[in-house]
């Protein structure tokens, strides 16, 4: 049975609502009768193995794909082909490949691209370029050609370009999968700041446990249906769920299991500090151990 997530803000209209969505590709049903409601400002992570329908789901939300049946409602308005371009300006989408979404000849031109599509006047475009380049530490890189930028820098540029369009919803489709762990952390920190400061509704698709656990809510897809829907810290400790999404149990979770086998029961957690605190509490009467904190 999929776990249901209790919405704290039931009175707020959902930013995104999917009602009985079905998506068919040829003879294969990629998404089967999916219904999800995402309140405004929530950070939802989506996990699932390749073929579970995660990317399809994301592309249905911004209209890159059309559902075979069912309704999609964005900010109270049903998603229809005629209004698709208006919707797209409200929903930012970041793809996995840093190169294949870098359209302009320079960072500056890339940020300008989306704004030109929105028919913004030149002065406003210039203003937004400066603001969002500053936000993502790209000011010195504004006039560089993408061939001279690293993957992480290009993804930051993509984020700047999409944020400059001032969407209310931001979808990140495995945006860090082609980056190394250093940039992954950088991007994650950036998202966390954005989520707090701008109350953006965030939808992140990822295979990375750290990224999944940063979200408010985790939806696990399997074979086109929702396998689980709840808090990341509750779902990511369940072995069968991890396996279904082709995620690997982090070391600290393995340790909890092994300790239980050894007769030491401290429950299950993916949080290292929490586990250490529990171990310490077990040993009792001494001050907590701390891990030298990472950046």
């Amino acid at each position: 049975m999929p776990l249901m997530y209790n919405q704290d803000d039931k009175h707020k209209p959902p930013a995104i609502q999917l009602n009985n969505i079905r998506f068919q590709r040829g003879s294969h049903t990629v998404l089967k009768q999916l219904s999800i409601s995402i309140p405004a400002g929530q950070w939802v992570a989506i996990a699932g193995c390749n073929g579970s329908g995660k990317s399809t789901l994301a592309r249905l939300i911004n209209g890159l794909l059309q559902a075979s049946s069912g309704k999609i409602i964005i900010h109270g308005q049903p998603l229809q082909q005629e209004h698709i371009y208006d919707v797209r300006s409200q929903i930012g989408y970041i793809f996995a490949s840093p190169d294949d979404q870098f359209i302009g000849l320079t960072v500056r031109d890339d940020i300008a691209f989306g704004l030109e599509n929105l028919c913004l006047p030149r002065e406003q475009i210039e203003q937004r370029i400066q603001t969002y380049a500053k936000l993502l530490h790209l000011t010195e890189l504004l006039d560089r050609h993408p061939a001279t930028l690293s993957g992480g820098q290009k993804q930051r540029a993509a984020l700047a370009a999409v944020l400059a369009m001032q969407p209310s919803v931001l979808i990140l489709d495995e945006a860090t999968s082609m980056l190394d762990s250093h940039f992954r952390d950088q991007l994650l920190q950036c998202l966390q700041a954005l989520h707090v400061e701008q109350q953006l509704t965030l939808i992140t698709i990822s295979h990375d446990i750290k990224e999944l656990s940063a979200a408010d809510r985790l939806i696990m897809l399997h074979d086109g249906v929702i396998l689980a829907d709840g808090k990341p810290e509750d779902l990511l400790i369940q072995q069968q769920l991890l396996k279904a999404c082709r995620l690997e149990a982090p070391y600290v979770l393995e340790l909890c299991k092994e300790l239980r086998l050894q007769g030491i029961d401290i429950g299950e957690s993916i949080n290292e500090q929490e586990v250490l605190n529990k171990l310490w509490a077990l040993l009792s009467s001494r001050s907590p151990i701390a891990i030298k904190s990472a950046r």
Partner: peptide, 8 residues
Amino acid sequence: DAMEARSY
């Protein structure tokens, strides 16, 4: 896809 996603 990327261009369309940016309202092109």
